[in-house]
Write a protein that binds this DNA or RNA. Sequence first.
DNA 1: GCCAACGTTGGC
DNA 2: GCCAACGTTGGC
Length: 158
Amino acid sequence: RLAPMNHWVFKTVPDDFSIDVLARAPGKKTRWYGVRNYQARNLLRDEVHKGDLVLLYHSSTVPSGIVGICEVVRAAYADDSAFDPASPYFDPKATAADPRWFMVEIRLKERFARLLTLEELRMVKVLHDMELLRRGSRLSIQPVTLRQFNAIVALAKK
DNA sequence: GCCAACGTTGGC
DNA sequence: GCCAACGTTGGC
């Protein structure tokens, strides 16, 4: 692929899915499914490419923060949890012909030695306009610039 | 548990 | 297509 690599934040509530689950998975690889917001869906389906790098964020924890880096190993394909009536992500309007929701596969690349809290991220000037730090930010798939990504990786090493 | 900020739903 | 009501998210 000739297009430059994209960078992302993926948010997850660790009670539902956490970096620990990813770390224990075969090949440290899992499907990233259950996105049920159209804006996030569109990013996942159209903009998240194989080879992109992802900052994994744990939300609804005290404190919340970024816990590591993943790599996208498979681009978007039908999220079949939408077809399963027993799944909390079931959507009766999703069909094989028109899946409506999509998932990708990610692999854990690096688990940070420590969690980077929102408070700490807010103190970094380069990160001031990050979507994650915006008041009322809820989008579960967020684009990140290379500058922001690099600043966060550098912060994790400190 | 509170509550602000969203997103979605559905009557009209 | 408007918009009020409702449901969900998520930091605190």
